[in-house]
Design a protein around this nucleic acid. Structure first.
Lengths: 211, 211
DNA sequence: TATTTACTGGACTACATAGTCCATTTTGAC
DNA sequence: GTCAAAATGGACTATGTAGTCCAGTAAATA
């Protein structure tokens, strides 16, 4: 009966939604950069909000962390490369590859992964599982489905679509993800990224192209 | 003049080297599992040692963490797959691949990565860079050299050995590393690992084999 | 045996932080 | 204007932990 919104008269000062957004954003940034140990005071300061306001919205630090994780999963899902279903494999894979390497080097996503890992295990165990299922696993499944379709259509020869999808993303990742997670920031030039994407697509097709 | 060992008379109870080893081992395990926030008391307890003994050997928590990181780099270096230099590529790559996937799923190495990431940035920035250079980067360079040789020998056609090595390891990793770092432990069957290794080698050779 | 050093265990200090409380101010709805 | 809820800021409690201190005990040499 979630009648929360039905408290008709609606008296008093209405909550400012920008506060909540600012808190989640600040918490995300600080958790990623400094780890879960960052203080609530620091988060409040970064969000330009009083500590009490945080506790009005989130009962505990863990709840706040959960909210941050949820918002991250959304980010990842939005950014999943969706293969054009009827595009020929060369074109479809190439688009996925170029999008993905840019996605992974965009600065935002590595922070998401760092965030997930920064939580101590007691806090993060369930959340990380949810995150993986909602984000990376879904992206993987989508591409595996695409590969299955292309096999059925006779455009590619794919014996094990799941394995192929996993390895395809793996080679696109290369060292990017691990280096980012370790906090070693480096600049990957556009040319380098394109070269890598093209190389991976070529290798994948050389194995799977229907002759 | 490191004359520490030259204090000739050597009176008094000699230090027990097993204490230091136990401390580093316990700290490594707990940092990996629980994060840098784990208490020194807990480490002392896990190592069956008094807290004071830890502080006799390591002046601060950061120093202890540094010692753990150093020991991890060694572990990684020891486990770098070293390609047999004169083996034909099919065989050499296959050996690397099978060794590597087992290595990455051995349970020990994911913990090392988790350890590196668990340190808050102030503590870990320099250490993680050292770790990467001593461990993963070295492994990568070794395989790149191997690929360069095979290209020179006319066994493979490799335009960019560094890129090829990076992508080769990347596809072997697939989702293994990321899932382990997220703490999602799963069991990878031997058959699955062999299939993946064989698949990656086949794909790599199908692109690079000299016809 | 005497001496010197390693190690233990427990008490202790100093400090940071999660979370609470409350008096005051702001903001919008009526 | 009036009222109710939102937000502030600052004081406050409780707790946990890094690091110290110390008195006692174990283990080796001389």
């Amino acid at each position: 009966m979630t009648a929360t919104a039905a408290r008709c008269p609606m008296r008093g000062r209405p909550p400012d939604p920008s506060k909540r957004a600012a808190i989640v954003a600040a918490a995300g940034a600080l958790f990623s950069r400094q780890g879960y140990g960052i203080s609530m005071e620091a988060i409040a300061g970064e969000a330009n909000v009083s500590k009490q306001t945080i506790y009005n919205l989130f009962s505990t630090k863990e709840h706040l962390f959960g909210a941050v994780v949820a918002s991250c999963s959304e980010t990842i899902i939005e950014a999943i490369p969706t293969p054009a279903e009827h595009a020929p494999p060369t074109e479809g894979l190439s688009r996925i590859a170029h999008e993905y390497v840019r996605f992974m080097t965009s600065g935002k996503i590595p922070l998401v992964y760092r965030l997930m890992i920064s939580a101590p295990s007691e806090v993060g165990a369930v959340l990380t599982a949810q995150f993986y299922d909602n984000g990376p696993r879904r992206a993987l499944a989508q591409v595996a489905d695409y590969l299955r379709d292309q096999d059925r259509l006779g455009n590619l020869k794919i014996a094990n679509p799941d394995l192929s999808a996993e390895c395809f993303f793996g080679m696109l990742n290369g060292q990017i993800l691990i280096r980012n997670m370790l906090g070693l920031q480096d600049h990957w030039s556009e040319a380098h990224l394109d070269e890598k994407a093209d190389y991976c697509v070529a290798m994948f097709l050389s194995e799977h192209a229907q002759k």
